[in-house]
């Protein structure tokens, strides 16, 4: 489903990704486990098309998408700090993806309701996003990234920065949502427990790049 082949990225002469390769099958939830600051976010950005690699290819379902712009990749992403659109309400945030794909309005509305129910935020549609709690923001971000039915979902440290209790509860919810929607996902994390709880397979950062 997803193949990353020999990807390299350097920032200001510092090699962040060096000849990195990995493979993900359809329906898998793969966790990439590595230390903070290792370059895991950079890898997700390359897969999402937000960053052009200096070398290497990215293949989605066998098709080379390395030079395809982000908005044509159908790869969703949940950012570490959510990045909800502050000027839009919850419903408009969740409906943004379907709107970009040109869905008709009634279908967008149904999809938004459906996803808000899935993440346990039914009736939150007209709330302002800056009034939400940390856990609610994570859930909106999850609903938003799933709304346009992405072929692949990327999660950047999805549960970092939450308090213990919320963290544990969201792990279960996130696990269930990913399984229920049959989403293929790559998540990066520095927390081994989190990775084990969410993923069907764990990849270690140090194994992805030749030494």
């Amino acid at each position: 489903m997803l193949d990353v082949i020999g990807v390299s990225v350097a920032f200001d002469g510092r090699q962040v990704l060096d000849d990195l390769s990995m493979h993900v099958d359809r329906g898998e939830v793969v966790a990439v486990l590595g230390a903070s600051g290792a370059g895991k976010s950079t890898l997700l950005r390359v897969i999402a098309g937000l960053l052009t690699p200096d070398a290497g290819r990215v293949l989605l379902e066998g098709v080379d998408i390395t030079d395809r712009p982000s908005h044509l990749r159908r790869i969703g992403m949940i950012f570490q700090d959510e990045q909800l659109f502050p000027h839009l309400d919850v419903a408009a945030n969740v409906g943004f993806g379907p709107r970009m794909s040109g869905w008709p309005a009634p279908r967008i509305a149904t999809r938004v309701e459906e996803l808000l129910d899935v993440v346990g935020l039914g009736g939150f549609g007209e709330r302002r996003v800056d009034r939400l709690s940390g856990g609610e923001k994570k859930r909106v971000a999850l609903a938003r990234s799933l709304a346009p039915e992405p072929a692949l979902l990327l999660l950047d440290e999805p549960l970092t920065g939450l308090d213990r209790e919320l963290h544990d509860r969201l792990i279960v919810e996130l696990h269930d949502v990913l399984r229920a929607t049959g989403t293929t996902a790559v998540l990066v994390s520095h927390d081994a427990d989190e990775a084990a709880a969410l993923a069907s397979r764990i990849l270690y950062w140090t194994d992805l790049q030749p030494v």
């Binding site: 098309g49 908005h71 990749r73 159908r74 950012f79 990045q83 000027h87 970009m100």
Partner: peptide
């Protein structure tokens, strides 16, 4: 405006022009 806010719009299917018009401009 965070770089990733525009990135989020892009991964949701917004072209660069649409991201500028729908996210950056209102902010």
């Amino acid at each position: 405006i965070p770089h990733d806010l525009v990135g989020a719009a892009r991964t949701l299917g917004a072209s660069p022009m649409k991201a500028a018009r729908l996210i950056v401009l209102p902010l």
